[in-house]
Design a protein around this nucleic acid. Structure first.
Length: 885
RNA sequence: GGGCGAUUAGCUCAGUUGGUCAGAGCGCACGGUUCACAUCCGUGAGGUCCACGGUUCGAGCCCGUGAUCGCCCACCA
């Protein structure tokens, strides 16, 4: 019957509700940000996912966090722009497409050629990008979808090239031959941040380098004997007495048929190995620097693929580097120059994308000079202008920037922003936003640099390039800088820091004020989710199984910010139950309220109820609004969900609604207006977290005439906290304790829940019973007692069970059913408890130091409690005595 | 090598500026067909807050040392 009245299903059915709202929001353009905002604006650049596949748990968590903020800000009346889009993700995407090409057609990108291969990547990007967009919509993310951007959109490319040209012209970008991280598989350079250090088991070899003339020589220690051929020197510490006589003399390089000098350099640690270091400038960053200092020859032994190059007089050409290592060791052994080999675990740099061991390699690349750029970005964080949540990430950010080295931004890839540098045959170099066909200096033909930019070079421009920069657009004027950037912790340096220094350099403005680092979702056993290990959880699948709102609710409440949180589906069950609870409470509320067109107006005009329960729940509501506001301000969403859950489930459903049932049945207008107010505000507060559920309920309210006909909660207003009512909170708090005590008593006495007791006598001083008087009916209803009698005279009825609570004694007459022994035992137990607490309090209060040093309020509190306990003790003793009489 | 985080009930986690019997959800036990909800309601059991030391009238919280787990950064062969 009720089902027909309200039109609401008995349980919340997400699958029946969600698709409708996805398209409804779209129709309403509910997420669009006005081009000409008439109110304060709020912007958050949504970190653009890589177009390498689908969204994962991290995106879902971050999406939820930002969406909660964005929806709240909308309800507060701000013009919100939550900027969506995707990142071309250079090396990652190129690899994914290359793999696919290899798997499906057995071809490499070179088989297709640059242009045809790029077409494939664009096609892939189209698919992946659409998938991501649809997934965000499914999540209910209130992104401004019409403003979807891709980091290789034509306008975005202009921004990238402009940024490059400006930095180039300022001398902050230049070309140079330096040591870089080279991936022999991807065949490209990598920035330091794209190199992962892994512990690998290797061997440390000791090799003898004989003196060129005469006896002796020197032993060195190395993990890379295959690079011996390219040695340019042997270095020792200048103070090392063992080798001082060798400095300046020459030693023969094993297998190489040449000699190199022994040089002295502070870099060498005399304690390590033999104290002798072979110097191979082309294959080790440190060696290269030593080489620079001593003007050593640079011999490059390896090809880009990591194989031994053609080498005069050496038979190893073409050997893969690790195979070459084995062969070199054999050869050294045969020559009798291998002194020792021991197991040795050490850190090895590997390619973040393909795990291939990185080859330090001397190479001509484009570099961004970091010294000047880092300064302002450091200052912004130091001054507190740029804030981090949680704060400790500030140190991580600062630490990186303070030690940052120049940034290698060129990549030997095809997929990405081609470096806008044109060189003519005469060697004139020009960086240009527009493509050049001839040299501006001499008019001869030009060629564009074949390399592309590090993908992070373009993502570093995201907050302003998406708003039209370098043009001075209205978007830029109104929606830049942003308020918040929320992201995962692992791209703090890779992305966050780079956005900051790029923005400060190119626009002069800090791109956002708050950096929020969200929680990382781990597997059930606390491991990182990994696609390759198959331990990843698909958020979409979870959304289908438990409902999108349930997933969002859990994610918003999951862990403290930046605290890892283990994922387990049971948690989603709780969240789903919460959604269902809200649904049913709403359903019941709608059933309990009058119907009819514009009923909401009549309710809104009613004066607030004076009933103490009503005052109480409104006071709780105010407290909750304050808690939620404060939680959101500090980006601590778990505090908000916790507060909301306590309020909605425990205070509103378990206590207020239960207590209000009789009044609602009678059509009491005070109860009605209170219910209506609480429900309306609660839906508003919950909406940012569980948008589908709340919109659906709101639509039902509108339908029943219980809410103004507003299409979406996003266009209603965010609840405002009223005043707290401490009298009501005190009175109802007492009532709750009494009811609980009576329930416990009933349970202890095994009184069937269905059986109503006839009387409950509440005995206590008038001031205590007075506060409870207005709640007597409620106590009776909730404790299942017919009549409640309040009195200050001691109750002397014999056959009743009693419990002392908060200055009152509750007596439940049992008509001769009372088990006297049991009752005595119960009372004695309670008395014990009182006595031990009284003793503890007395001890505390007898402590001079405590009484004199602790704040008065704390001492007073104890004194009050002490008196209460004493009263309780008296009451219990009296009761016991009465039983004996 | 440097830095950071975590350690609280069987499990997963909260715990605001130190304030006096430590909280939630799940699980567990017991009891419930009260006409919103069994995705529910009620009651209960369960914790030397990792260890040791220190500061304090008072420490889960502050300081020190150590242990275990995890993460980040780093050009020592």
């Amino acid at each position: 019957m009720e089902q027909l009245v309200t039109g609401m299903a008995k349980a919340y059915e997400p699958e029946a509700v969600e698709p409708g709202w996805v398209s409804r929001w779209d129709e309403l353009a509910a997420f669009a940000s006005p081009e000409l905002p008439t109110s304060e604006t709020w912007t958050a650049p949504c970190p653009p996912p890589n177009v390498t596949g689908a969204l994962h748990m991290g995106h879902a968590v971050n999406g939820t966090l930002q969406d909660v903020l964005a929806r709240t800000m909308r309800m507060r009346g701000l013009a919100v722009r939550w900027q969506p889009g995707t990142d071309h993700a250079g090396i990652s995407t190129q690899m994914v497409v290359e793999r696919k090409l290899h798997r499906e057609e057995g071809k490499t990108r070179h088989d297709l050629g640059r242009a045809a291969f790029l077409e494939r990547v664009w096609a892939w990007k189209e698919d992946s990008g659409n998938q991501i967009l649809n997934q965000y919509r499914r999540m209910g993310a209130s992104l401004d979808y019409d403003r979807w951007r891709f980091t290789m959109d034509p306008e975005y490319s202009v921004a990238v090239r402009t940024a490059f040209v400006r930095l180039f012209e300022k001398g902050l970008i230049s070309r140079g031959k330096r040591m870089i991280n080279w991936c022999p598989r991807c065949l490209t350079s990598l920035s330091d941040l794209e190199v992962k250090h892994e512990e690998r088991e290797g061997r440390l070899y000791r090799v003898r380098y004989p003196a060129e003339e005469g006896e002796g020589g020197i032993e060195i220690a190395t993990v890379r004997p295959e690079t011996i051929l390219a040695d340019a020197a042997v270095a020792v510490h200048p103070e090392d007495p063992r080798y001082r006589h060798l400095i300046g003399r020459k030693v023969r390089v094993p297998l190489a048929g040449r000699s190199v000098p022994v040089i002295a350099d502070d870099y060498v640690d005399p304690e390590f190995g033999t104290g002798g270091l072979k110097v191979t400038p082309a294959h080790d960053p440190n060696d290269w620097e030593i080489g620079q200092r001593h003007e050593l020859e640079v011999l490059d032994l390896l090809t880009p693929e990591g194989r031994v190059a053609e080498w005069p007089g050496a038979p190893w050409a073409g050997l893969e580097r690790f195979e070459a290592r084995a062969r070199f060791v054999e050869a050294l052994e045969q020559e009798g120059l291998l002194v020792a080999a021991e197991d040795y675990t050490h850190q090895v740099g590997t390619c973040e994308r393909c795990a291939t061991v990185i080859e330090p390699r001397l190479s001509e690349q484009w570099w961004v000079r970091m010294a000047e750029l880092a300064g302002p970005a450091i200052a912004a964080a130091e001054s507190g202008e740029l804030r981090f949540h949680p704060e400790r990430w500030r140190d991580v950010y600062l630490d990186w920037l303070r030690n940052v080295r120049d940034w290698c931004v060129s990549r030997q890839l095809w997929w990405g922003h081609r470096i806008p540098v044109f060189t003519c045959s005469a060697g004139h170099v020009h960086a240009s936003v527009e493509d050049l066909t001839s040299c501006p200096t001499c008019g001869s033909a030009v060629e564009q640099d074949p390399d592309v930019l590090d993908t992070w070079f373009s993502s570093a421009l995201w907050p302003f390039a998406t708003q039209g920069w370098p043009l001075k657009t209205l978007d830029l004027q109104h929606y830049f800088p942003a308020q918040v950037l929320s992201t995962a912790r692992d791209i703090m340096a890779l992305w966050v820091a780079r956005m900051v220094f790029m923005s400060l350099e190119l626009t002069g403005i800090l791109p956002f004020r708050d950096v929020v680092i969200h929680a990382t979702i781990l597997t059930r056993d606390g491991k990182r989710m990994s696609k390759s290990k198959g331990t990843g959880v698909d958020p979409l699948e979870m959304m289908e199984r438990y409902g999108t709102d349930a997933c969002r609710w859990w994610m918003a409440g999951a862990g403290t910010a930046a605290q890892d949180v283990n994922f387990m589906p049971e948690k989603l069950e709780s969240a789903r139950n919460f959604c269902n609870k809200i649904w049913n409470a709403s359903r019941f509320s709608i059933m309990s309220l009058p119907e009819g067109e514009e009923t909401w107006r009549r309710l809104a005009d009613l004066p607030p109820s004076v009933d103490v329960m009503d005052r109480w729940i409104l006071s709780c509501l105010s407290r909750t609004i304050q808690q939620v506001d404060r939680a959101l301000e500090g980006y601590q969403l778990h505090l908000a969900t916790e507060a909301l859950q306590v309020f909605a489930w425990s205070e509103f459903c378990d206590w207020w609604l239960e207590a209000a049932k009789p009044r609602l049945r009678e059509g009491d207008s005070g109860a009605q207006v209170t219910l209506w107010r609480v429900l309306s505000d609660l839906l508003g507060l919950l909406h940012p977290f569980v948008p589908f559920l709340t919109e659906e309920v709101h639509a039902h309210l509108v339908h029943a005439g219980l809410a103004a006909p507003v299409d979406t909660l996003l266009r209603t207003t965010w609840p405002v906290a009223g005043l707290r009512d401490s009298d009501a909170e005190e009175a109802v708090g007492r009532m709750i304790e009494v009811v609980r005590s009576v329930r416990t008593l009933r349970q202890d006495l095994e009184i069937p829940p269905a059986k109503k007791a006839e009387r409950l006598i509440l005995e206590g001083p008038a001031q205590e019973t007075d506060t409870l008087a207005p709640l007597a009916v409620v106590v009776g209803f909730l404790a299942r007692v017919d009549t409640i009698e309040l009195q200050d005279a001691p109750y002397s009825g014999k056959g009743s069970a009693s419990v002392v609570v908060r200055g009152l004694t509750a007596h439940l007459p049992l008509e001769g059913l009372l088990d006297l022994d049991r009752e005595r035992y119960r009372l004695a137990q309670a008395l014990e408890g009182c006595k031990s607490e009284a003793a503890r309090l007395a001890g505390q209060l007898a402590n001079e130091a405590f009484v004199s040093k602790a704040p008065a309020a704390v001492v007073d509190k104890l004194r009050t409690r002490s008196r209460e306990v004493a009263d309780q003790e008296l009451a219990l003793q009296r009761r016991l005595a009465m039983l004996e009489a």
